[in-house]
């Protein structure tokens, strides 16, 4: 390049830079996060209203005496049994017994379901061999595993974990499989041209690209863990096992303590929702938001 056109080239280059900066400014999408007050108004208020309505209808039915108190306890009676349990100091203990079992079981399911899902998704033979069984297992109610688990392992914590694993591993593995299946082929081609093949491709391209499907699988896996655990706790209650929410429910039935039964159901529901809201929903939103996949409403 002759030095005589350097000056001209410089000016032309500055021109282009300015033009480009202008285009970028015009085209850039402004993304912003919704303010807290709006979140409260649009996301938190509606479910609270719904809960209040349900309680109001419930109270109304009790007042109208549609059925005897043994079948439908008043909200206040259920509240009393909550505070009784709280005052005895056992409420948190009962909840923690189940939650710790559920979470530990879930983590085990995660450790088994992830490599299993990856194998099914990436190895054709494995997919043909166990893929259909794995998705079929999802439709088998995990309560069906309780009798064999009790026979094999006896009435203990291992039995509970076995039931959780049989319920949650297929969900987690299937979530990962469908996540991998939905990876756009373009990403795989782009990865290959960058040199991401084999294990490198799996680690750098396939796994992160499959993350949304995987997280959806985790969410479902948690729901299955929790359900399986409750089935196991209700059927296999034994004094050696410690009092969990399932046993609390079963005890209520044995004592014909309807407020206690309601209390146990509400606690099981609350814990399931709380773990989802505190753990999995934020995780899912963070993954989707990072990719610009959250639809602004």
């Amino acid at each position: 390049m002759a030095s005589t056109d350097t000056a001209a080239k410089g000016a032309e280059s500055d021109d282009l830079a300015g033009l480009e900066a202008g285009l970028d400014a015009l085209d850039t999408v402004q993304s912003h996060r919704t303010p807290v007050s709006e979140v409260l108004l649009k996301k938190v208020l509606p479910p609270l209203v719904a809960v209040a309505l349900v309680v109001a209808v419930w109270q109304f039915l009790v007042w109208a005496e549609v059925t005897d108190e043994g079948s439908l306890p008043a909200p206040s009676a259920v509240w009393d049994s909550v505070s009784d349990l709280w005052l005895q100091g056992t409420l948190l203990e009962v909840v923690w017994t189940s939650v710790s079992r559920g979470l530990l079981g879930f983590l085990l399911a995660l450790a088994i379901g992830t490599p299993l899902g990856l194998l099914v998704a990436r190895v054709k033979f494995v997919r043909a061999a166990i893929g259909p069984i794995l998705s079929g297992l999802q439709s088998l109610p995990s309560v069906a595993w309780v009798p064999p688990a009790v026979i094999w392992l006896g009435l203990n914590n291992q039995m509970m974990y076995a039931v959780i694993l049989l319920g949650a591993v297929p969900s987690i593995a299937n979530g990962l499989v469908s996540g991998v299946d939905q990876v756009p082929p373009l990403f795989l081609r782009a990865g290959r041209t960058l040199g991401a093949t084999g294990l490198k491709g799996t680690w750098h391209i396939v796994m992160p690209a499959a993350l949304p499907g995987y997280v959806a699988g985790l969410k479902q896996g948690w729901a299955f863990s929790w359900r399986s655990l409750m089935a196991a706790e209700i059927i296999a209650s034994s004094p050696d096992l410690g009092l969990g929410l399932g046993q609390l429910l079963e005890n209520g039935r044995n004592n014909s303590d309807m407020p206690g039964v309601f209390l146990a159901i509400l606690l099981i529901l609350t814990v399931g929702i709380a773990i989802d809201l505190l753990l999995f929903s934020p995780l899912e939103r963070a993954v989707l938001r990072g990719r610009g996949l959250l639809v602004k409403s």
């Binding site: 373009l186 040199g195 690209a209 990719r291 610009g292």
Partner: peptide, 21 residues
């Protein structure tokens, strides 16, 4: 299509290419 990986920032997309190299 740009084929950039949406789970990475612009800079990290480039760094991934460098890393793989």
């Amino acid at each position: 299509e740009h084929a950039l990986f949406p789970w990475l920032t612009a800079g990290k997309n480039i760094e991934l290419a460098l890393r793989l190299r």
